[in-house]
């Protein structure tokens, strides 16, 4: 029997560069498709920008005294145009500074998006993984439940929750989560079904590794990429849903600003002072555009099969 030939090993493999994302590539190679996708870079930039805006918005909402910036109704001129001295984005019908209100509204939107996505990812992943892994009757019951929930319109669920609780962000977050987890569960279930047929899962079972450990050690890490991509899309979807609910008055209640609510109020002046509605509307559009293009870029990193040619 021949001695083991160590020359067939790559000499100085960049072990440190390999992390648990897409094995086999260095960070540079992994980021290349992302950087080549100009829209994705724009998306990352936009998302980062709005995260900063949201942080500022959260600060002025929670730091005592700073909230004057967006709720104070001193005797300022109402409906000032954007680029007025002291008010870069103008003022609304109560003379409140649009810039700070949009910052605070962005914080509310992104917080809702993140909260809903974390909640629905948590339950979606657990139930989806359970259905896919267990199969049989467990799968059929959970899948039926998923289909049932997925069929519910968010607005209907939101009305129920607002009726049961009181109108506000909590009800909205719960209502969207109650529907959105089903979206995660469907994808996770499908992924688990394809993953569990792979030989390394079977090898783990043959070694007597308990099911929960197989899920934690093998399934979850191998699904993380897809889940991250999905999460970015779901945050965008949630931002739109939250704005829609706020528009019809089901979301955050005044004085907490929200982009949807601002559009709703600005509607009354749409012909004479359109910026009151258009500026928060554009903010929503840019947040969603940023998240979606970022999601596309992430998908290019994690799923080489769908890479743009």
């Amino acid at each position: 029997m021949t001695a083991f030939d160590s020359s067939s090993l790559p000499p100085e493999a960049p072990i440190e560069a390999v992390v648990a994302v897409a094995p086999g590539l260095t960070w540079g190679e992994r980021l290349a498709p992302f950087l080549a996708n100009k829209l994705a870079v724009l998306g990352a930039f936009l998302t980062f920008f709005f995260l900063v805006v949201a942080c500022i918005g959260a600060a002025i909402m929670f730091v005592p005294g700073w909230s004057d910036l967006y709720i104070d109704q001193r005797l300022r001129e109402t409906l000032l145009r954007p680029l007025s001295p002291g008010f870069p984005l103008g003022t609304d019908q109560f003379g409140r500074d649009m810039m700070w209100r949009i910052a605070a509204g962005t914080a509310v939107s992104l917080f809702t998006g993140l909260a809903v996505t974390i909640i629905s990812m948590f339950f979606g992943m657990i139930l989806g993984a359970l259905a896919g892994y267990a199969g049989g009757i467990v799968d059929r019951v959970i899948s039926a439940f998923i289909d049932l929930v997925w069929g519910f319109p968010v607005i209907l669920v939101a009305v129920i929750f607002v009726g049961a609780l009181k109108p506000g962000l909590t009800a909205v977050i719960l209502a969207i989560s109650v529907v959105n987890w089903a979206g995660f569960a469907r994808i996770v279930r499908a992924q688990v079904i394809s993953l569990k047929e792979r030989a390394f899962i079977e090898a783990a079972r043959a070694l007597g590794v308990p099911s929960w450990k197989i899920i934690v050690r093998h399934l979850v890490p191998n699904m993380l990429g897809t889940s991250l991509v999905m999460a970015s899309y779901y945050i965008a979807v949630t931002v739109i849903a939250e704005a829609g609910l706020a528009f019809i008055g089901l979301g955050a209640q005044p004085p907490t600003p929200s982009l949807g609510q601002m559009i709703s109020e600005g509607r009354n002046f749409l012909y004479v002072n359109p910026w009151v509605a258009i500026l928060p509307g554009m903010t929503i559009a840019l947040i969603v555009l940023g998240l979606n293009t970022l999601g596309d870029g992430l998908r290019d990193i994690f799923d080489p099969h769908l890479r743009r040619s």
């Binding site: 648990a20 094995p23 086999g24 792979r198 030989a199 390394f200 079977e202 090898a203 043959a206 070694l207 007597g208 050690r217 093998h218 890490p221 191998n222």
Partner: peptide
């Protein structure tokens, strides 16, 4: 659990049988 310690398996596809991560 005891049986799993005594009986093991080696698979065909060496690319599929090891967790890439």
């Amino acid at each position: 659990q005891e049986f799993r310690r005594k009986a093991q398996i080696i698979f065909q596809d060496p690319f599929e049988s090891l967790d890439p991560r």
